[in-house]
Design a protein around this nucleic acid. Sequence first.
DNA 1: TCCATTTTGTGAAAAATACCACTTACCATA
DNA 2: TATGGTAAGTGGTATTTTTCACAAAATGGA
Lengths: 207, 207
Amino acid sequence: MADRKKVPRIVVERLPLYLRALSTLEEGSLITSQELGEMLGISSAQIRKDLSYFGGFGKQGTGYQVGFLREKLREILRVDREWGMVLVGVGDLGHAIARYGGFKREGFHVVAAFDDDPTKIGKKIGALEIMDVARLPEVVNRMGLRVGIIAVPAGNAQEVATTMVTSGIKAILNYAPVGLTVPEGVQVYQIDPLVGLQSMTHYLEGF
Amino acid sequence: MADRKKVPRIVVERLPLYLRALSTLEEGSLITSQELGEMLGISSAQIRKDLSYFGGFGKQGTGYQVGFLREKLREILRVDREWGMVLVGVGDLGHAIARYGGFKREGFHVVAAFDDDPTKIGKKIGALEIMDVARLPEVVNRMGLRVGIIAVPAGNAQEVATTMVTSGIKAILNYAPVGLTVPEGVQVYQIDPLVGLQSMTHYLEGF
DNA sequence: TCCATTTTGTGAAAAATACCACTTACCATA
DNA sequence: TATGGTAAGTGGTATTTTTCACAAAATGGA
């Protein structure tokens, strides 16, 4: 355990992978760092080191109790609770996000959806009514939301991000293909499939 | 220039970001590594070093010609051509992917869509007819496709990936929240928004 | 032409990250 | 209650990645 030292971001970003792998296993079973590593294509030493930043969760000679480690990871990542999220941009992508079951299953709920297109405002998406983005600050504040999802075109993303941040949002999942400028202390995670495609094609030889 | 040495993957993954930033600039203008770095939140030294893996594209005292650097990056990433892509899984997400204009704009086209749901097969998605996934090998082979997108539930993703690989696919954009096992030489880029959300909430204190 | 500026390209240094290998603890068995 | 086998936790080392800082090249003005 090394509670004094700052945990590298890259370590924190691996924890969800561990969590994901554990969720495919029996709650009461045991798993070794070796086995977990093989499931994920990561060395066992890396896994043990990563976990040791937060404490010793395993038993020497035995391994890790799946259910226990899972709970500990959920605490560390603060996903041992429900998170309400605000979604801005209800196009094709926004729809898919609002309806995606994978978020709900892990405690992330889209609780408010916004757009700036008057033809969309007032319409429903599932049980949610699409609201004018002008009402975002009020809603974020009233509901005490901290997580936002941006699914608007690149040109509007920074504006939306700024509104989110001034409204109190602290973590932004950004699907717009543009980097965001946010104040210190606000987290941004960018989803950019083009980065993936373009870096993969680099390795495609002879086509 | 250091053409002999292996280029780190992390460097290749930054090139699309440079390309993205350049696309917002005047074709004929000049930009310095400093300016580009400020646009992206990356140090100027990093940008120069990254580019130097592939050759010297700038002029000392002047900077980089936007249009020229853009073309060079497109060559390096092999996005100076059109790429046909096969999409498997036409749920909400698959729909959003098939209709996303951002791919087309950069030369990535979904040219065939598959699903295993008999109620979907034969339906259209834009100009594309949804086909039975059993026909994937034939289509991939006939059209000479090398890039695949997986947008099926986690439980089916590995199976689809294996089919893709045996059919000749060399690069997979995986939207399913599960790691894929593929042979050496096949690229996988995973899109997992939950990893983003879960690692961001770790940093959210006091909520 | 000369000189002051600018900015690239790049070895070398520093920092960050990953891995190794060993000690320690735990378990099962006899 | 030894004992042999196993696997976590971790200090140290190796590797990778980033940054530094400077020589060399280009520009423009006097």
